[in-house]
Amino acid sequence: MTEIKTSQILLPEGDTHGQLFYILHEENEQLTNMPFLLGTIRAEFPDAVIRIAVVALDEDTAWLDAADAEPDAPATAQLAPRLAANIKSLEHDIQAGQHIHGVLSEATAVIGVGPAGSLVLGLTLLEQPIAGRLITFGAKFPAYPLELSLDTTVHLLHADRDMAVPSARAREAHERMAQLQADATIDIAMNSAESFSEVLIGKMFERLKTCVPLRYWRYAAESESDKEEGRTPPTSLH
């Protein structure tokens, strides 16, 4: 099982923990735009808790390429348990953060960069949603879910010239999400080779501030009797 380690926890100035931003990246990856991301989170969401976790994927990444294998390939059966174990490890770490900081899944955004983002997209395979938003930069699905709850909104951000993961994979993923009638967006930075760029980080915050989750329309369509009983949309990252 791939080990996930917390590298940094940034708490808001006040005692209120409104949201949780859980950021996952490769352990040996140097991300020059990380300070920009953290600074913008703090500016836009002053009550948010920020947890940065690292994962070592350089030794064995075969399980992340499960989607590249043919459905009947012998390796597929061997990759599935490994993939499930790593997704479960990530799920437990996110849940631990939610419990410690008292933040619900609806108010949690999980951000994944590069190959670590592919692991984040694997969270869509869980039976129960772990976060209100899953956000990835330059990632691909290790396997596609058969269905995806509207309680999770997926934001795909990708450079059109990304050398590690072709942007065509992001477009394919967005099409797959549309077929599932899932809540997903895609932003492609043209003439760029860097997916984790200031431009796409800016797009991420634009989505967070302006993209109303489809689940809100579901709540709005509920009967008047449900509203009288006090059922309202949960705290979110919108």
Rank of each mutant, 00 (worst) to 15 (best):
G97I: 00
F45V: 01
G230F: 12
G97E: 00
W217F: 15
A173F: 03
H17T: 13
M1P: 15
E13S: 13
E3L: 13
L214Y: 10
E206I: 08
H238T: 11
K88I: 02
S197F: 05
T136Q: 04
A80Y: 10
D15C: 07
T124V: 10
Q179G: 10
T16D: 13
A62G: 12
A53N: 10
P213N: 11
E26H: 05
E228N: 09
P213Y: 14
T210Y: 14
V54D: 11
L20S: 02
A67N: 12
H99E: 14
D72N: 12
T210F: 15
D183P: 06
T136F: 01
A96P: 05
P115V: 04
D58S: 15
T2S: 10
G39H: 06
A193E: 15
F45I: 01
P233I: 02
L38C: 02
A96S: 13
L57T: 05
H158P: 06
L10S: 11
G112K: 00
M204A: 01
D60C: 00
D226M: 14
L157T: 03
D187T: 14
T76D: 07
K209C: 03
A96C: 06
V49Q: 04
I41K: 03
G138D: 00
V199N: 13
L38D: 00
A164N: 07
P71V: 05
F36S: 04
A109L: 07
L126R: 11
S236Q: 07
E26C: 14
I130D: 00
F205A: 03
I41D: 01
Q128F: 02
I188G: 09
E172V: 06
N86H: 08
P46D: 06
